[in-house]
Design a protein around this nucleic acid. Sequence first.
DNA 1: GGGTTACAGATTGTTGACAATCTACAAAGA
DNA 2: TCTTTGTAGATTGTCAACAATCTGTAACCC
Lengths: 236, 236
Amino acid sequence: MASVPVPTDPIALLRSHSLTTLVHRELERRILAGELAPGDKINEEDIAGQLSVSRGPVREAFRALESSGLVRMEKNRGVFVRQVSIAEADEIYEVRAGLDHLVGRLVAARITGPELAELRELLKGMQSAARARDVDAYYPLNLRFHDRLVELTGNRTLVAAYRRLVNELHLYRRQTLARVPDSFPVSTREHAQIVDALARGDSDRASALLHEHAMESRDRWHAALAETGSPRRQAP
Amino acid sequence: MASVPVPTDPIALLRSHSLTTLVHRELERRILAGELAPGDKINEEDIAGQLSVSRGPVREAFRALESSGLVRMEKNRGVFVRQVSIAEADEIYEVRAGLDHLVGRLVAARITGPELAELRELLKGMQSAARARDVDAYYPLNLRFHDRLVELTGNRTLVAAYRRLVNELHLYRRQTLARVPDSFPVSTREHAQIVDALARGDSDRASALLHEHAMESRDRWHAALAETGSPRRQAP
DNA sequence: GGGTTACAGATTGTTGACAATCTACAAAGA
DNA sequence: TCTTTGTAGATTGTCAACAATCTGTAACCC
């Protein structure tokens, strides 16, 4: 699910492994893992020192991360982990919902038996995590479920666009996470309905359900947020 | 409509103008203008010499362009203007159609009188260009019409995603342009219908029309292409 | 004391040089 | 003649030093 996949073929590995890509991957990992929090300043020389490379590859990685929306660069000031305001998060949720609509339509038209079984397997895991009220187990399964769904469209452009949005939303959640106590999703039934619609090849219903699901996921987060107050200060 | 807007405020201009951004903008311009054709190799030192900068900023610009999908970098081999295959173009068209659906729904719900007048003004220009069968005048107006439409959603995430796709499609058209003789679009009536639906606030119809329009635009291009044979060879 | 200016340290922007890799061509062998 | 191997030139990857800019502090003036 990483934006920069690791090749398993050793020759392809050597061909693609420049220091820049290594730095890029490591920084992306730290940001998405929350080791670098939104708003944090990232020091070029520190990163270079930690990874034992010079500043050149680090700067190149910064440019790539900026294009993918994970950091913000200010000339002569430095680079900062991007902060996503509530308004921006709303926008991102809205676009993601639009893409999910498309995902439902495309997947319903082409999904195969084994793929359906795979989704149902993921569903099972989510349900047992939900019963145990184990958020730490549920959350990554949820991500995986939706990511796999997008992959099943077979549309790589769509996959790339979708993942970019998910990453940005991840940033938003990271930013507000500390203040949201226990926003456990109650969406397992919705997921089951989605899979059922896909199984019937009912693309209208699948796309409608996926769109709804995305918007409700936004509402759930907002509701949880409203209980605890606004997120941290935003950049201008 | 540029991906990297030029600030008009002189202080903001100085604040944001690093050599990297200048190189980035110039390369993007050359690619979209067709001065650098899909598949062309871009030599670091040449670019650096032409723009009178060192290779550092050029390499940083390359990384940014790679993330935005305009070039492809191969380790120790160089950077190449990205080639978009027919299959990829299909995928991109499909995603763009999905976004257009969303655009229609959002714009219909919030468009104002002056904005409608602005769209109708653009329409007028397109119609007169169509009557004169002046493709060179029509094409940029068409781009502007759709770009403005997306802007009117007020959703900057959507605007960014949309423009990225349009840029990539531009690459595809550049690649096949030489072989497509006179694919003059017959879409002025569709545009008028879209604006009418927006004026009525009919979001269902607007989104349906915009979606259709995007898919038909794909079909038109493919049909024109089929008359002249397949595009140039693709990268593996 | 409040505010402004000057300076020092730290950080980023840019550059040119060196090392590693690739490409093309030519020489040697079968 | 065809293939292989070796070498030279070109190109990319990486690095370390220098220049420009910013941030914070302290001295200075009113």
